[in-house]
Design a protein around this nucleic acid. Structure first.
Lengths: 341, 341
DNA sequence: TTGTAGGCGTTATCAA
DNA sequence: TTGATAACGCCTACAA
């Protein structure tokens, strides 16, 4: 059986209220009894019961997070870690859930809200009109989203400036002398993908490079999709000398396609990714990529969430964070680029 | 304000006990009142409060899992997913925590136990003598470990037969005609690493290949470590024709080292990894690797945990699961192997 | 078949 | 400064 506050109070010869005060408002207790109580607490290894505390405080100190499907998020590892670490600093913990089969995803959120499972939610993989965001706003339930969206009211979000990331990538490539720069992007309509294409266009214009529609190709995402798209791109008479992608997995697929064509990436062709996933760092050649500052993202998300927990009426706001470009061998060998073939 | 059982009972014109029975023992309630209560429940969108339920049942339906440090586990994504999915089928959720700074890791577990945070733990990254295992056994608190260990008493664990995985790898390589097969392993003393080396030795003997001490090299783990070790191995006068590793990250480092030497993996050299991480599948050439059946691992772990939750006295047992070998281009080109140089 | 009451372990309120 | 007591929302006896 676990130790209760009653046992501690008996042991210390005080009332339960006093023990509670020692823990929650030590200044209200005289030093003498305080130390007597503290002794009893440590002798009995007493820790307040979480459920009881939650029940009375109407607060669980738990934050809900629905895991994205496997393979969708290539930096989940770092993100989750930072999230847990950040939460822990505020006495919060992250509870994972999955869309229960048979029920819609939304129902899981709804049930959690009604049963007081968690104090708030962290959302990721949001898109333009995410029904979860609408639901949570309507329920006026605390949450933060990784990713902007359109919503009826302002809400808390953190996002990474993908457009800026791609601009930096294109600048880098243009600086190396590339002129035919292609981009492999997801189909239009993606909250994270569209700005990246916009960044590509802007940077190309600024670099004085011609924008040719055939240099903008679409792929569903993932390695195989990148491989196929890359193969097609490299099978053309007029090949691009550089291929920008919106996802590391796509870029790694392009690298494979280049090998299929007998080309050496980093020499015959430049390729870039997005996410700086572990696979990007460990690829041969190393994959130049846009790195999202996941630690910052997570920390900021927790910050925004905590401020809502403290004051439900707090002004909602968004944070747009700047990414870095990590340059690796997949975009090396400046000056050797020319019209291929 | 959230809906309480009281409001439901008022609305349905019954007592709270009856509402509770409708939810927990429907057969005790007459069909008439039952449907009346059910109506009230859905109209009011009533969901029982989790904290109150936990308090009274002395059960939180939460399982604690301490995230491994980033980069340690290359298959965390799949594992977590399967864990969450498996837990969800039993009405359990996974709560993540991190070693709170300043305190020892063990204290986090201790505190969780005493305060009734969770009903049990899932452990991963265990080693021979894991203090957490000792603590949990001593506290007779429900838990399952991913990985065997030495302990004072039997406990529940699930593990993947790493030795068998490496045996299959060596068999595969020997079948391709390789004779000088090296292994890059972690330093001795690792619960997961040692059996893999043992598997290597056994398979080499069985294949009638000479075991040369210089073919067994040690590396700390990780890409850079693999790159360095690989470079050294390939700088020798008598190079191995195949390099087995105990981790994908190491293998990818070896692939990079081979490129540094101007060698083409899959043709001049065979390389294998362990874990079948996303990076392995997306590497060029694709990395032959040992795939741990993470879905099964997680499912079995949940199974073992749930059985303890149902009956604390249940017999503890372990499960050793068989891995698969995923063959990719890094071990292709059979028959072209010879003494290099 | 249904209602009532006690208790799960805390914290907050109010007296003393 | 401390002690008693009433919630918090639920479930489970037990009584009706």
């Amino acid at each position: 059986m676990r130790t209760t506050i009653r046992q501690v109070s008996d042991r210390a010869g005080v009332s339960v209220g006093t023990v509670s005060n020692v823990l929650n408002a030590p200044n209200l207790v005289s030093p003498g009894t305080r130390s007597r109580v503290l002794d009893a607490i440590s002798e009995l290894e007493y820790w307040p019961n979480r459920s009881a505390r939650s029940l009375q405080a109407q607060r669980t100190h738990l934050i809900g997070y629905r895991l994205p499907d496997p393979g969708v998020s290539s930096a989940l590892d770092v993100f989750l870690h930072s999230l847990v670490a950040g939460a822990s600093e505020h006495g919060l913990e992250i509870v994972l859930f999955s869309g229960c089969k048979g029920h819609s995803d939304l129902d899981a959120y709804r049930a959690s809200i009604r049963s007081g499972d968690v104090d708030g939610f962290v959302l990721s993989e949001t898109n333009y009109t995410d029904p979860r965001i609408a639901l949570l706003i309507e329920s006026s339930f605390p949450f933060v989203a990784f990713g902007r969206a359109v919503a009826s009211q302002p809400f808390s979000w953190v996002d990474v400036d993908g457009a800026a990331g791609i601009v930096a990538i294109v600048d880098h490539l243009a600086g190396l002398g590339h002129q035919r720069i292609a981009i492999v992007a997801w189909p239009p309509g993606s909250e994270s993908g569209d700005p990246r294409v916009a960044g590509y266009l802007a940077a190309m214009v600024r670099a004085g490079l011609a924008i040719e529609p055939e240099l903008i190709v679409r792929a569903d995402g993932g390695f195989e999709s990148g491989r196929k798209t890359g193969w097609d791109l490299l099978s053309r008479r007029r090949r691009p000398t550089a291929i920008v992608t919106v996802q590391d997995d796509l870029a790694l697929g392009v690298i494979a396609a280049a090998a299929d064509h007998g080309m050496r990436v980093g020499r015959d062709l430049a390729v870039t990714g997005f996410d700086d996933s572990p696979a990007a760092a460990m690829s041969t050649p190393g994959l130049t990529s846009v790195r999202q500052p996941m630690e910052l993202v997570a920390a900021r998300m927790i910050e925004l969430l905590v401020s809502q927990l403290q004051d439900p009426e707090v002004q909602r706001s968004g944070s747009l964070l700047a990414p870095d470009v990590v340059i690796r061998a997949s975009t090396l060998s400046p000056g050797v680029w020319g019209e291929v073939r």
